[in-house]
Amino acid sequence: MRSKILIRNLYKIYNEKKENEFFALKNINLNIKCGEIVIIKGISGSGKSTLLSLIGALSKPSSGDILVNEQNIAKLPDIFSSQYRNEEVGFIFQSFNLVDGLSVYDNVKAPLVLSNINQDELKKKINLALEVANIAHKSQQMVSNLSGGEKQRCAIARALVNSPSLILADEPTANLDKNNSLIFVDILKKFKQLNKTVVVATHDTIFDNLAFVDTYVNIEDGAII
């Protein structure tokens, strides 16, 4: 399914109407078309992660609308926003956010246990995601024993397992060396081929001037410039 994000007059304010009131995002307007790859650039603290978490319904905006597939996710009750995160969005976090003490396979399984699918289908989906992320050979390893690059590939497999149409990546290369960062750029290209809509928040220069990226957005002090 093709995805489209339309953001209108988006504000995120912390400690609203208090002394230490802080505008994390100010009047953001953004239109992301289906299958686009968008890189949001900005220094840390500029608000790009906040924007990403709002698009991913991890937190709720102070005002404004976020329309994904023409559905406003800004004020969705928890059950629906969770369903949205589960089925429509794949997250790739800076610190990978894998569950320690579980194997790669079980980590990738986690998003699938919410839907009542049979065992065969479950296995098929997990194995496919492991193949795409190129981590199938380590599927029975504990995630704590993996290297940084492998951890990220595991996280990518988990993001892909429910075949979401939207991929959100927050500083994906911050914990990787140069080599693995380049691999990630390749994976980004793969996403483009799979026709996923991808939003990457980063300050890494490795993403500069990539031919397959559709839009670069620069963000500073919570506003797009």
Partner: peptide, 15 residues
């Protein structure tokens, strides 16, 4: 943190 991870990949409060 573990709970937050599960929430981020789609576990609802009730889950």
């Amino acid at each position: 943190r573990e709970i937050a991870i599960f929430r981020s990949i789609g576990f609802a409060i009730k889950d």
